[in-house]
Amino acid sequence: MQLSRRHFFKIMGVATATATVAPAAADTWQSKSPPDPFGCLVDLTRCVGCRKCEEACAEVNHLPTPERAACQCTIFEKKRRPDDKAYTVVNRYFTGTVDENDTPVPTFAKVQCMHCQDPACVSACIVGALTKDETGAVRYNVDKCIGCRYCMVACPFEIPAYEYFDPVTPRVMKCTFCYDRISKDGGLPGCATICPTEALTFGKRNTLLNMAQKRLTQNPGKYIDHIYGEKEAGGTSWLYISAVPFETVNLPVLPDKPMPKLSENIQHSLFSYLWSPIALFSLLGAIMFGTHKAQKPKETPSQKGGRNA
């Protein structure tokens, strides 16, 4: 046993010092959301289900052309999700509203990466391949990715998809918020560009929140009085307003708390400055030191460890 007394106290000292400082520092969790991000407001009352956004998305992101059912109506028969070949899809929901002829009124809802303000995927990503950009875009850097798919586990919107059929260089596939376009002056995401009814409105998130609020107050009764994404999961860059409850169009009910807050809090309070491992190391060292000292008369601890670990 080579642990000297001097050494031991040194380690203990450091451990105690970090132990007292670290937890306090870690508890003050700070949102890392950008100050003035872009956003996109989806007004479900305006969406007509033309699926042009899907087409535009595929075009600007060089994805396969979306399936064109012979008739728009057949494609909506199954509920689709974004996948590795489509960053966004539009689904049709019948929520029980009927028109004056008792015909069910459809609500169409586009779904894509919400670009959370404090994204779970970014927090989860083991290598930091996912980042939240100043523009609001949650960006993916394939050069860092190892393919652990923890982002997919973490995402509360179940968005990131994976190229499961690529054996060597699969990528996580999700809406890029057309970062390359929106980061340029006046640039727009592909889907918003093409939307014929401006069911998608692109702009600064704060502007859009004001605008959405205005639409809610100026059309009482038309909308559910809630801007989805304002607070959900700590806020998202994509915002939705709708005439039907959001859960009926498969938007999940989520807490307002940012997804990463809890896990980051726990991780940081446990491990910031590695205080806890160092403390534990010191503690176990002390115990070991103690037990071996007591047993020393009987045999040499160094032989013990070496031979029988």
Binding site: V122, S123, A124, C125, I126, V127, G128, A129, K144, C145, I146, G147, C148, R149, Y150, Y162, E163, D166, V168, T169, P170, R171, P260, S263, E264, Q267, H268, F271
Partner: peptide
């Protein structure tokens, strides 16, 4: 299991200390 098996070394150089998985790894 990981998609890019050959990149398994990358967490050594790309640290995301917010990630629980990073710490596990």
């Amino acid at each position: 299991d990981i998609g890019r098996s050959w990149a398994i070394w990358k967490p050594m150089f790309n640290w995301n200390t917010n990630s629980v998985l990073f710490e596990v790894a």
